[in-house]
Design a protein around this nucleic acid. Structure first.
Lengths: 211, 211, 211, 211
DNA sequence: TATGAATGAGGGTTCATTCAT
DNA sequence: CATGAATGAACCCTCATTCAT
């Protein structure tokens, strides 16, 4: 019986969470009202405070979900003994999958987590951790001889993550749908291709570029 | 006399503008108060409304400055007949120069303009225009044979701009100073190097990566 | 069985009552939450409403306990045929004993019952009754020739009760402990001594005071 | 001009202050709403926040007025070289005068300052300072031989202040008016008379009291 | 009895904006 | 031009109380 109640509690909490995702996505953190979220969830606004401490607590729950999932993926991919290419691909696919499965979440990531000035410090800490892990991957790649060593690992990190994030951003802002897995593949490949081999045409013309 | 007054008006407006830059940077748009800006400018808060319509108008002025300057640069670099490498380098240097000369502005760009949900539509339009221009550069590069054609031009754009923006973001959040022009060079070179030639080690080991 | 249940009911009620004492003491009536009291009692907050009508009803129960006990003492001391000195001493000792045995209760008396603006009317009525009884004692004392008649009986009452209450207040606020019965004696004696014989030094110097 | 504006500001602040006195008196701190105070002052509630930080700041202003005035009196009476009798009389008359001139203030003192649990710590500090000053007077009296030395000075303090406060309280709660200066005299005399010479009848009967 | 989910009145506070001076 | 007094919409949050289970 207790378990049943607990389950109900979790379910209701999830309903509020989903509503919050939607509303935060539509209005952004600052303009989202608790009343909006409650209305979206079909409950009274007071009940939101039964399940979450306050607006920021609710937002933090979202933030937490996002990052912990991401960390988990990074950890899994690290333990899986996959090679550099696979690992970078996994990161990209995590974003693309989330884009497909939980567009609200990725929207919030792009607009409210990745940037914007709410709650700066903790947000940055999450971000840094992500960067540090990614940088570890890059360093591994350099050590293993896969990645060039004349560019610092954290520079590679910025370039990779920045490129990916902007990719997602453009899709988010343009409201582009991912129609099928092939499209996901194409995006991931383009990104990795350029990141790994560069944008320059390797033919004769390209060679003249900097001369 | 009229001209003198007009000049005074412009000067006072500039004072408010500078104050707004500082305050918007420190607090973000939503938490910045008109009273803060006025205090920073050393005037009464009522006076702000003589020079700007309202808070959003003031913010738009900043936004406008940023983008118009950027467009101007893009235009100039296009007309200058510079090659692809130079043009991309100019964009990067514009950001790095602004980072040096007007850190408030670049901070606002990163936090409030580039993303975040204030005033979504007009902001996106500015951004799109920037992307379109950049995409034009990429397309030119492809046409001229400098850039590979198997990746769509707008993909190249996302990758380039995303990488650059994240570079700047990290500097902004880490409060890193640019000490000298050599550092700017190094950053620009790293970015361009990876963008153009890729991160992969061109030696033997690197070749095995995707196998 | 019925009796047993009734007893259980009383016990649970007592648990809530004790918890309320503690919480009202710590937070005061306004800041005390039913949830706090329930937590203190180790029950759910809904259950409080099975045993008491509402927050005020719970507080009234405390109030009632305090006053009825006090009235009972006053009645007993009146019937006991004790003399004025004994009767006044009994009142003081009642407060001091309560201070020892039920510090929460005396704390609430000082902070929430004796003054403060909750529930003004009923509280005043309780208080008045107490004053009237005390005034009766004073009047008796005047009639019997023990107390001076040039000061009205209710003035004597104010002075006596006010002095005593402040004594207790200071102890409450200073968190002073009563270590033993001798200390209680000393306090009671000091109070009665000054009340009955005055603070003025009866020697020669004192005589000059008002000249 | 500036001075004139400042004066206006102070006047408006005073209007709000007066309104707050009235409303805090009628409803007590907790039940008083800023909107009530604003309505009483004939202004919008937002304006209250123009002149005071918040509800507590407004209340603190009242508190401050009360205590600083009282301290000032105590200081003046100390420097005036008056004797013990005069000094105690001054304290009593300060309360009675305030009762006449600013009944709201004395009401708030009795209900919200002297007791009740808002903002406990600072309130107690104010109170303690008052007690310490009074205790100094008592100690002076003992040193000068006017007051008996077998009762500790702080005990004398509690008795004196407690008696006085209860006197005032009863007047406040009973909504008694002070009709003329003679009545004030009578009250002050009664209090001092009992405090200094005691309540006991000095005739033969009284002597038997404790036997 | 017992629980705690659910409700919503209620109030404090912020601050953009207006406007009389 | 300049000031800052004045307004009030807006919104977060608390918590007593009810009630289905």
């Amino acid at each position: 019986m207790k378990k049943g109640n607990g389950q109900l509690r979790l379910e209701k909490q999830a309903v509020i969470f989903e509503a919050a995702l939607k509303v935060f996505r539509q209005k952004g953190f600052h303009k989202a009202r608790i009343a909006d979220i409650a209305a979206q969830a079909g409950i009274s606004y007071g009940l939101v405070y039964h399940y979450y401490n306050n607006k920021e607590g609710l937002f933090n729950a979202i933030l937490h979900l996002w990052w912990e999932d991401l960390y988990r993926l990074m950890e899994k991919t690290r333990q899986g003994g996959e090679n550099l290419y696979q690992r970078l691909r996994n990161i990209i696919l995590y974003f693309l999958d989330t884009y497909q499965d939980n567009p609200d979440l990725i929207h919030i990531f792009i607009n409210e987590i990745s940037r914007s000035s709410i709650n700066l410090k903790p947000r940055l800490d999450y971000f840094k951790k992500f960067m540090v892990i990614t940088e570890g991957i890059m360093a591994d790649g350099q050590k293993a001889g896969f990645l060039r060593r004349d560019i610092e690992a954290h520079y590679l990190t910025y370039i990779f993550l920045g490129a990916m994030e902007t990719f997602i951003s453009v899709m988010v802002y343009g409201d582009q749908k991912i129609r099928n897995d092939q499209q996901k593949e194409r995006i991931a490949n383009s990104l990795l291709e350029v990141f790994l081999h560069g944008a320059q045409n390797s033919g004769q013309e390209g060679a003249k570029l900097q001369s």
